[in-house]
């Protein structure tokens, strides 16, 4: 565990260019969102709220803006959602390349290599993603929410909202939902690693291998995933809080804010690199399993996924 974390932190330090590439998956969709928000926000400079907004927060500006410009807000929101989707796909695309570069190291330019490798892996990554979404729907939706719904039904209409079964339902929803989400996501991550290593020719095999690698190490992997999540969320909260606190009142201040936030996102991207490096380190230790799994799969029905 310690070695894995040490590897992760070392990767954070060493692979700044890779973090920069990953950062692009934020900046490019953010640019799209910025363009979509242009016509909507332009009105603010010619509104009575210019001064108050430059000073800080204005509750009425926000409410009257969204009430009187509902159609424009909807249009902008649609583009922002599209930007989020694009950003997510971009992350999927770049992650494949990032993983290959992390695995192989090798010459620069990093961006070119990430794009080349990402392109090569993108189709199979999309297949793995669809499998991931199905698993998520099953474990979080079916098992998490479904069981909670069943508990509600068993409790019946006559049970008080604070009754034991409703308490169990709430706890189940939170813990099983989160646990399901983390485990399903971890398996997806390991499957992507298997694809990046070339251990698996397709998403199905990659998922099978990920299942093998995760077996018996769930607690350790969950611990590591939680650790990096906490690190990333803490970094995000810190930079967001300071960003809001900065509240610039001049052009220079705004420039400083933008710079500061992008540095923050870069550090968050580095934390993501650290997470991947940690997973790769653990995965390395499970290569023996991989060999046996591959040999089994070539001769007969491979190990079954849980």
């Amino acid at each position: 565990m310690r070695d894995a974390l040490r590897t992760g932190f070392r990767a954070m330090r060493l692979h700044r260019r890779l973090a920069g590439v990953l950062w692009l998956s934020l900046v490019l969709p953010a640019g799209l969102a910025c363009m979509a928000l242009g016509p909507l926000t332009r009105q603010l400079d010619t509104s009575p709220f210019r001064t108050s907004l430059v000073k800080g927060w204005d509750s009425w500006a926000l409410l009257s803006w969204s009430s009187t410009r509902a159609a424009e807000w909807k249009g902008a929101l649609a583009v922002v959602l599209l930007a989020l989707l694009v950003g997510w796909l971009l992350q999927l695309f770049l992650t494949g390349g990032v993983l290959r570069v992390l695995i192989d190291g090798g010459p620069r330019p990093v961006l070119g290599r990430v794009v080349t490798e990402g392109t090569a892996l993108f189709k199979v990554t999309l297949w793995a993603t669809s499998r991931y979404l199905l698993s998520l729907a099953f474990w979080v939706g079916g098992v998490g929410v479904g069981v909670a719904w069943l508990l509600g039904k068993i409790a019946g209409k006559s049970a008080a909202p604070d009754s034991f079964l409703f308490g169990v339902q709430e706890t189940w929803l939170l813990t099983a939902g989160l646990l399901g989400f983390f485990l399903v996501s971890l398996r997806f991550d390991l499957a992507r690693i298997a694809l990046a290593r070339g251990d698996a020719p397709n998403a199905r095999t990659a998922y099978r291998l990920a299942g093998v690698r995760i077996r018996g190490h769930r607690a350790a992997l969950l611990g590591l995933a939680l650790f990096w999540s906490v690190v990333a969320l803490a970094l995000g909260s810190l930079f967001t809080s300071i960003g809001v606190w900065l509240n610039p009142g001049s052009g220079v201040g705004l420039f400083v804010l933008i710079l500061f936030r992008q540095v923050g996102f870069m550090i968050q991207a580095s934390a993501r690199i650290g997470f991947w490096a940690t997973l790769l380190h653990i995965d390395e230790g499970r290569r023996a399993d991989l060999a046996s799994a591959l040999s089994t799969s070539s001769c007969g029905p491979g190990p079954r996924s849980p």
Partner: peptide, 23 residues
């Protein structure tokens, strides 16, 4: 004000996207 609000809005979008990194 446009530049300021748009900057914060774009940071919000980036924050949402970076959530995918946090998990």
């Amino acid at each position: 004000a446009t530049a300021k609000v748009r900057t914060y809005a774009v940071h919000l979008v980036e924050n949402l996207l970076s959530l995918a990194w946090s998990l």
